[in-house]
Simulated scan of single mutants.
Amino acid sequence: MSKMTNKAVIIISAIVVLAAAGGISAYYLLRDRGVAAVVNGVKITEEKVAEEVSKSAAQYEAQGMALQPAQLEQVRSSVIENLITREVLLQESASFVIPDEEINEKIASLQSQFESDEAFNEALASQGYDPDSFKEVILQDMKIQKLIEEKVPEETTVTDEEILTFYKENPAYFTEPERIHASHILVTVEAGDDDEKKNQAKAKIERISEELKNGADFADTARRESEGPSGPQGGDLGEFTRGQMVSGFETVAFALPEGEISGIVETQFGYHIIKVHERFPESSVPLEDVRESINSYLVQDKNQTKLKDFLESLKNAAKIRIPGIKDEKTTEEV
């Protein structure tokens, strides 16, 4: 199965196969259990919408984010749109035939990802499925997949001109930020240290600084004296860009010329002495180095656009009615 088709089915099925379970929120218990939308005569009920909104809300709550009524309304709108899209696709793909053995193979593949049959069945039950209803959902998904594969053939070609245009129009994507290669020696000071410990740390870093000024090797000194995790590596921090180190350390490090050693720098971690080995100015990544990644991105973008256009064409051709919203083609309301 192609990457595009995989993604299409995941997008279309997202509302149906949500990972979190939960009861219908109190907010939606207050909503009239009527019809949320009608697609070519097929009703999407408020009960179904409330069920899927509840699952989505449970996902947020599992991450410690409780949705407010206004946010729930946004989720509801998204759920309705997804259910409408799915219903249009189900109707369009109704004539496709999927052999029972292919459906069973798909289910077996999913089931193999669980430790046991019991764990698989518990997962189904947590989402409100039994084996039969889950099999029906898999059948629907496979029909949709087959429809998309037939009606939206995968795009695989991108021209050199398209790649070059994208490269020129998006320079920020292909810019390597300024970076430096540096080492440091750290004498730590903990947040709760008393003045005596702070003074001892200050005396130690001052002694180290004098030794370096007198010609001591930086890496050897770091291995012997540094209290930071990079000490065994001679204090080597590797290469880094702005924003990766604490501000005081960064300011001094990026101001140092190559080969220079700083004075004593104080941060919340303690006292540092920094040596910059090499500086790398901001630069553009050569086109040839990113040609393949641009090609992949543009192919994916083309396929997503084709899929979106196909879905829009199906919905535009369908008779879709939503309570309180007039259908521009019929001027009817549900």
Rank of each mutant, 00 (worst) to 15 (best):
R76P: 00
D217Y: 06
L67E: 00
L89K: 04
I205L: 03
E333W: 08
L147N: 02
K202I: 12
T45P: 02
A58F: 04
K198G: 00
I107A: 02
M245T: 09
I208Y: 01
E278V: 14
I138R: 01
L30P: 10
E227Q: 14
V265K: 06
A58T: 05
V9A: 01
K135W: 06
E87P: 07
D160E: 11
T330V: 03
Y27P: 04
A21D: 12
A222M: 07
E333T: 12
F114M: 02
T251I: 13
V137P: 01
D193A: 01
P171G: 12
E122P: 04
E225Q: 07
S262L: 08
K204E: 14
S133K: 09
E122C: 10
M142A: 06
P177N: 04
Q74K: 11
A20G: 06
I148V: 15
R291K: 14
E101Y: 15
D117Y: 07
N214K: 13
D289Y: 11
G324Y: 10
K329M: 07
I320E: 00
A37Y: 11
N199L: 07
N170F: 14
R207D: 14
E288I: 09
L83T: 02
I294Y: 02
E260M: 08
I10H: 11
K135E: 04
R86I: 13
E190Y: 07
T221H: 05
P323A: 05
L314Y: 05
N316V: 06
E102R: 15
P229N: 13
I185K: 00
E101V: 15
D217P: 01
S283F: 03
I84W: 04
K204W: 13
S226T: 05
E149S: 08
L311T: 09
T241C: 02
I84D: 01
Q268S: 15
I44S: 03
D309I: 14
D193Q: 03
E266Q: 11
A36T: 05
T330S: 03
S209K: 15
G243I: 14
I10P: 00
L314W: 10
K202Y: 15
G235S: 08
I294L: 05
T241Y: 09
A70H: 08
V39G: 01
G270D: 01
F240W: 02
S56A: 12
F218V: 10
Y271A: 02
G270I: 12
V39S: 03
S93N: 08
E149F: 02
M245S: 12
G231R: 12
K151F: 05
H272C: 04
